Computed example of a mutant assay.
Amino acid sequence: MSDEATIALVTGANKGIGRAVAERFAQLGMTVLVGARDLAKGAEAAAGIRAAGGVAHPIALDVTDPRGVTAAAEEITGRFGRLDVLVNNAGIAGELGAQSPGSTQLDGVRAVFETNLFGVVTVIEAALPLLRRSFAARIVNVSSGTASMTWTTDATCYLSRIPAAVGYPVSKAALNMLTVQYAKALSREGILVNAVAPGACATDFAKGLPYRSTRTAADGAAIVVRLATLGRECPTGGFFDDNGKVPW
Rank of each mutant, 00 (worst) to 15 (best):
P247H: 09
V224K: 02
L227Y: 04
A174T: 04
F80P: 02
L128V: 09
Y211A: 05
F80S: 03
R132N: 12
M1N: 06
V112Q: 02
T150S: 14
P66I: 05
T236G: 09
R82K: 15
V196L: 04
G119V: 04
G18A: 07
T156D: 14
A147C: 11
F25N: 10
F135V: 13
G199F: 11
R37Q: 15
T122V: 02
A5W: 07
G94K: 00
L159R: 14
F135P: 01
L9S: 13
A165Q: 15
T214R: 08
A47G: 13
G244L: 11
A60V: 07
V32I: 11
I76E: 03
G220T: 08
E23Q: 15
A200H: 01
G220C: 03
P129F: 12
N176V: 05
V32Y: 02
P169K: 04
I76W: 03
R19K: 15
R110N: 05
V166R: 07
V87Q: 05
F240A: 07
T6S: 08
L9Y: 06
G208L: 01
A197N: 15
V55G: 01
L106H: 02
A183F: 05
A136Y: 09
V142C: 10
D107P: 00
L227E: 13
A173V: 06
T146V: 15
A165T: 08
Y158P: 01
A127Y: 02
L178Q: 10
Y211L: 11
G190V: 00
A40S: 15
R79V: 06
L227Q: 15
F25P: 05
L83P: 02
A183Y: 04
S100M: 08
V63D: 01
R50L: 02
P163K: 12
A71P: 06
S171Q: 08
V180S: 00
D241P: 02
S2V: 10
L131P: 04
V180I: 14
M1H: 14
A111G: 00
S160P: 04
T152E: 12
E189Q: 14
A127T: 00
Y168S: 10
A98L: 06
P247T: 07
P235Q: 10
E95G: 00
T104P: 00
M149N: 05
G108R: 03
I124T: 13
A93H: 07
T216M: 00
N194W: 05
G119E: 03
P66C: 08
